[in-house]
Design a protein around this nucleic acid. Sequence first.
DNA 1: ATTAATCCAGTTTTT
DNA 2: CTGGATTAAT
Length: 675
Amino acid sequence: MPLSRLNEEQKNAATADLGYNLIIASAGTGKTSTIVARIAYLLKQGVKPEDILLLTFTNKASKEMIERIANYFDEKTVKQIEAGTFHSVSYRLLKKSGKKIVLKQPKELKILLKSIYEKRVFTHIDSKIRQYQYSYLYDIFSLYQNSSVENFSSWLCKKNPDQEPFLDIYEDIFNEFKELKNKFGYVGYNDLLINIIEESKQNKINFKEILVDEYQDTNSLQGRVIDSFECDSLFCVGDYDQSIYAFNGADINIIGSFKQRYKNAKIYTLNKNYRSTKQILSLANRVIKKNPRIYKKELIVTKEHKDIPPKLFVFEEVFEQYQQIAKKIKYSSSKNEDIAILFRNNSSADGMEATLRELGINCKRKGSISFFETKEIKSLLNIISLMINPKDIMAFVNIFEYAKGIGSVIGKEIFEALYKLGKGNTLKGLIQPDSEVKNPFGKKNQNYQLGLFDDFENLGSVARFRDMNFDEKFLSNPILKHPKISKEGALFIYSLYNFVKNSHNTKSPYKIITKLINSNLYHFIAQTISYQRATKKNRILDKELSEEIKQKIIQKAWILSNIAKNYHDIEKFLNALVLGSSEMTEGEGVNLLSIHASKGLEFKEVYIIDLMDGRFPNRKLMSQGGSLEEERRLFYVATTRAKELLYLSFAKYDRIKKIEYKHSIFLEEAGLIRA
DNA sequence: ATTAATCCAGTTTTT
DNA sequence: CTGGATTAAT
C-alpha cells in the first residue's frame, strides 16, 4: 500500500481525520505521494470513489496521480474518482446536468470583444489619459473575475483611478459582451467556473472530500468554486513559496488565512526533502529567505550523497550561451530525458531549441503554436465548431476567409441571412431554408431616411450560377441572391452545403473529420493555404511546392483525425482540445520549459538560462503589477526542480536586440556573484 | 465600401 | 511568424 512507503509526517497528513486540513509541503517533500496515499486511505476507509474530488493545476498532473492510484486499486474504482483541473472538472459537472457547452479560446473571445469595443467612442478630457486597448481590457477583466466579487467598476477604480472616465463605457462593453456570448453560445474559461458556482447553488453537488493540489496558486474564483460544494472535508496541499500565478489572481492570502476561514482547521507540515542535494537546497533557501514568511520553514535534507555544488556560467553573448549549454548537454552523462532547460520567458526557447538541433540533440517542448494553431488545423476545427454550434458566427466568418471575394463583412451578412432562413440554425438555413423567407437580407431597409431602397439595391439574379451544376435545392436557396457573391464564392458555399448535408447526422468525431478531409470544402481550403505558402515574394506560384505543401496539410489533418479516435462525442472532443491542447508536448529528449510549466516536475540535471536583470526578474512585468517577491518565488521554483546538478547562466549582451545586460539580482542573493 | 495585398513592429507567465 | 496598419484594387 502507498501508506507504508511514507515517512512519519507524510503518514500523519495522509491519515488525517476528515475535516479542513492544510498540508504545507515545501518543494520536493513528497507532496504527490502524500496525495496519492490520502486517496488510497480514503478508499480503504470505504469512501466511494465518486465522492472524491481531486483538483490539480494541470490535467497531466491529475492523470499521473490517478495512474499511481491505479497501481493499488482496480481500474473501475479509480476511474470513478472525479479528477482534473478546476476547469475540466467544472466542464464535466456542468455537462452532467445536461447543458450544451461550446468553449472558446481567450484569443477568439478577444476578437469578439474587439468588435464591441470598436463601436464605442472614447473621449479624452485629459489627453494624457488613454483608455485600455481591447486586449488589455480583456485581460484585466479576466483578472477581475478571478480575484474579486465586487463590481468591475469599483474594482478597477481602486486599482487604477486614472481610468475613471471610461468606467461606464467598460461596463457597457462587458454587458454587451455577455449578451453576445449568450447569443452565439460561447463559454470562456472563467465562465466555466462562474457557471459551476451557480449550478451547485441550485443543485448541490456532494463530495465526501475535496483534495486540492498546488493550493498556493488558487485564486478567489477557484476558492469560491471549492466553497460552493459545501464540502465538510478538504485536503489542500501547497507551498507558500511556490505561488507563481499572481497574474491570474492567485492570492497567497488564501493559503495564509486557511485557519481563519475554516473551522477547526488543522495544519500539517512536510519538511523532509527527498529531491535535491544539500547544496542545491541551501542555494534555493538563501534566495527565498529574502521573502517575508508566513509559515516557518525548516527543510531537512535527506540526500547526502553526490553533493555537487551548483555552478554559474557567464557568457559574453546570448547565442554563445545557448551554444555552450548545448555542448555541455551533448557531453553530459545524463539521459536527455533527465535534463531540463528552464527559462523565465518563452522567448528564450526558440534560440535554445535551434542551437540544440544544430548539435543533433532532440528536445521536448510544449506544442504551443505548432499544431492546433496552424491554419490547416484551425480551419478544420472551425468547421467542426460550426457543426456543433450553428450559432457560432466567428467560426462561420473564419471559414469564409477561404472563399474568394467574401471577407468579414459579407461573411457576417451571409451568416445573418442563414440565421433567419434556419430560424436560428445557420446549417438548417443552408440545407433546408424556410420557404416563407423570400429575402433574408432584410437589415438594409432601415435607411429610409437616406433615400436608399429597401433590401439591397438589386438582389443578385440566381441566373448567374445556372451553368455551375449546382443541385436544384441549393440553387433555390435565397442566400445566392446576395449581389456580391461571385461564382467562386458560390462554389465555396456549395461545398459547405454538400459537406453539411452529408455529415450533419454524424456523431463520431473520427468519422466526421474523415468526411471533412475528403470533402471538396477542405480541398478548397487546403488548396488556398498551399497556394499562399508556395507563393514567393516575386508573386510567382511554385506549383510543385504547393502540391508538396498540400500533401503535408492533409497529413496533419489525418493526425487530428487520429486524436479524434479517442473520443465518441464530437462536442467533448472539441472542448477537450480547448481545455487540454496547451498541455500537449512535442518530441522526445531534453526538456525545454518555462518555469511556470516546470511546476511540479523534477529533473536530475537542470539548467536555468538567461538570468539577466530585466529578463529575470522581468522588470516589465513588475512595472505592471508583478512583484519582486513573485519573481523570487519563480527563481525558487526553478532551482528546486533539480535533483543532483544545477547550472545557472546568463549572457552580458544580446547581439540581435543590441541590449547590454547585467546579471540577475538573484545570482547575488544566491551568493554566486558578489554585489 | 469592402477586399486583397503589402509592409512593419513586436514578442509574459496559464486554464 | 503574426497582428495591425496602410495602400491598392475591385
